[in-house]
């Protein structure tokens, strides 16, 4: 077990390092480079300024030296300075991460609270009308993209005069009630697809466990069907949920970019998008790395939890 934990953490670190390397290389492939981007078309007339900028960002060093310095800073938590606002990218990311993490946690909670009971219900009533209905709902949920759902929700809420704020985010410190109200629609938009995934995984888990010999044994020894379902089937079928929560994090973090933009939430995704659109490369670089890092960490925790929870796995 210790061996597994150590290897798994080591691969996670390697993966993050690989992500950082790919992002670094990608940023060096930007046509024209940083100086051109900052100065715009006038760059060719301002050789002195170009040289000053290249010196400031260390662009004259050999690429490997640049990479080493950049990586050292990144590991120490310094992701550079925004071109546009001249503020620390790390500070801004830390500030905005809260909104994104809150949004993904809410969406995950929604997916579990709604998805687990529905999945168990459908699995226990396999091929019955309730099962078929639930499966259809799950498939529809999986098929409506989060930004389409968000747009539809905004339309319904604004035309029906439902009292939910749409682009009126308030930080929890300023107005807690308004804050939670502003998170309702984003959570719904982002969480539906995740809910559908949970339903499907739990359902097929329950169906699979129902065929296991230990369930037959439990029935044969005369346990009431309810007890068999709750104590034996559901408990075993819940284990894969851990993995799904980890994998869903990837979709949720990507979807958060769209949802934050749509609902005007000041999160990581919106910061990343603004960074890209204004060619603010340190921002783009930092946000993509932190986004991938969050996903890697979520998957790492999911895998470790899985290994801990499933007694059938021995490492």
């Amino acid at each position: 077990m210790t061996r597994y934990v150590v290897t798994r953490i080591a691969t996670a670190i390697l993966t993050t390092l690989g992500v950082a390397t790919i992002v670094f290389v990608a940023m060096r492939l930007v046509p024209g480079g940083f100086a051109q981007t900052i100065l715009g078309p006038t760059a060719s007339q301002n050789q002195a300024t170009v040289a000053a900028i290249e010196a400031k960002y260390g662009l004259n060093d050999p690429p490997l030296v640049q990479y080493g310095l950049w990586l050292r800073n990144a590991v120490q938590g310094d992701l550079g300075t925004s071109f546009r606002t001249q503020t620390s990218v790390t500070d801004e990311i830390v500030r905005r991460c809260r909104v994104t993490i809150e949004l993904t946690v809410f969406a995950t909670l929604l997916s579990l609270i709604v998805g687990i009971p529905l999945g168990v219900y459908a699995g226990l009533r396999r091929n019955g009308p309730g099962d078929i209905g639930t499966r259809l709902v799950a498939l529809v949920g999986l098929s409506v993209p989060d930004f389409v759902l968000g747009t539809l929700l905004i339309y319904v809420v604004s035309t029906r005069g439902i009292g939910l704020p749409i682009s009126a985010y308030a930080s929890p410190g300023d107005d807690l009630a308004q804050h939670f109200k502003a998170m309702v629609l984003p959570t719904l938009s982002l969480g539906l697809a995740a809910t559908a995934v949970v339903i499907r995984v739990i359902r097929s888990g329950v169906v699979e466990v129902l065929g296991e010999p230990f369930v037959t044994t439990a029935r044969a020894k005369g346990l009431a069907p309810r007890i068999v379902a709750l104590r034996h089937v559901v408990r075993a079928a819940l284990i894969p949920t851990v993995t799904i929560v980890g994998i869903n994090m990837g979709y949720l973090l990507g979807g958060a970019v769209l949802i934050e933009e749509l609902f005007g939430l000041p999160g990581l995704g919106r910061y990343a998008l603004q960074g890209i659109l204004s060619r603010d490369y340190p921002v783009a670089q930092g946000t993509v790395i932190v986004g991938a890092l969050l996903f890697v960490v979520a998957n790492l925790m999911a895998d470790l939890a899985y290994a801990y929870l499933d007694p059938r796995i021995k490492y």
Binding site: T16, V19, V23, A26, Y251, L253, V257, A292
Partner: peptide, 13 residues
């Protein structure tokens, strides 16, 4: 490890 949309942002940059 790259969420698709974030990867799209990187590519667009």
């Amino acid at each position: 490890a790259f969420p698709t949309i974030l990867l799209g942002l990187l590519v667009a940059a």
